[in-house]
Design a protein around this nucleic acid. Structure first.
Lengths: 152, 152
DNA sequence: TATTGTTATACTCTATAACTATA
DNA sequence: TATAGTTATAGAGTATAACAATA
């Protein structure tokens, strides 16, 4: 056994290492699963995530979106173009800087998000049977930490 | 505001929905990040995950590994072939069923896992500066739940 | 006839490099 | 000269379909 738990400054060091290992596996496996269990066909997880960001933030430039999603600018160009082709986002010129563009969601996107939220609830209901309240509480607590971790 | 918090049977329903949304984004973003911040070049996250599974379980058939990693059998065939080419796993005939094979890790794999664990600790150290003890605790608590979620 | 694993092929998502336009 | 975004191209990882061998 390690002495870590008796050393305040480094306590849980080994447990953190184990947690990171478990997180790596879980994130990759869950990611593959989410890729296929899409709430909305024809919309990739990243496209979904971008729409979610726009719903929260109102609007953003392609560069800002690329940084948030951890993709390179050319990837975001493509994602935004696909969303625009589906009528889910609108591109407008930036008011102050003619190099930049402003991406914002359309009314169709709002309707689609609401519809997919209902579909997601079906999936949630099946998940809820497999997780007890304590496990849900742990997920709720960890969600913002995972979000932070993705951007550290 | 919702009444959910006053209804015991469905309490946290909305929060769970929010948590699933946040998890979706976080998992995809973190997944993309892990894809690039590899502890070991030349080894994909899935290959790493398979080695971890073998380290825990000793050995498994390609089919079992495919189910664990949530990939299709042909994908696992390829992954196992790559690991074998790198000398990290060994394939042997199944004792009872001549259709199946048994995959197990080599001594090289064990050495490699130990080496990559040290590299990972460097990454961990930088992460540790960004997360406080309370946040680490939340990650440790959620790791097994995420693992379970991936297989529900 | 069902199951395990493989081969061959194609697709999705993302990255890198080179380019254009604006600051 | 630096920055925002785009175009063109390539690569990694995974899937589907068709097949072989064994149960």
């Amino acid at each position: 056994m390690s002495y870590a738990k008796y050393m305040p400054d480094l306590s849980h060091g080994d447990e953190n290492d184990d947690a990171v290992n478990a997180l790596r596996s879980a994130v990759m496996r869950l990611g593959r699963r989410l890729k296929h269990q899409r709430v909305d066909e024809s919309l990739s997880p990243t496209e979904m995530s971008v729409l979610g960001t726009l719903a929260r933030c109102g609007s953003a430039t392609p560069g800002e979106l690329a940084r948030k999603e951890h993709v390179q600018p050319p990837s975001m160009t493509r994602i935004v173009a696909l969303l625009e082709a589906k009528g889910l986002v609108r591109l407008e010129p930036h008011p102050d800087d003619r190099r930049q563009k402003v991406v914002s969601q359309t009314a169709e996107a709002e309707a689609m998000l609401e519809q997919s939220r209902r579909k997601r609830n079906v999936w949630l209901a099946s998940l809820a049977e497999g997780l007890d309240e304590d496990e849900w509480a742990k997920l709720r607590a960890a969600a913002p930490v995972l979000e932070k971790l993705a951007h550290l």
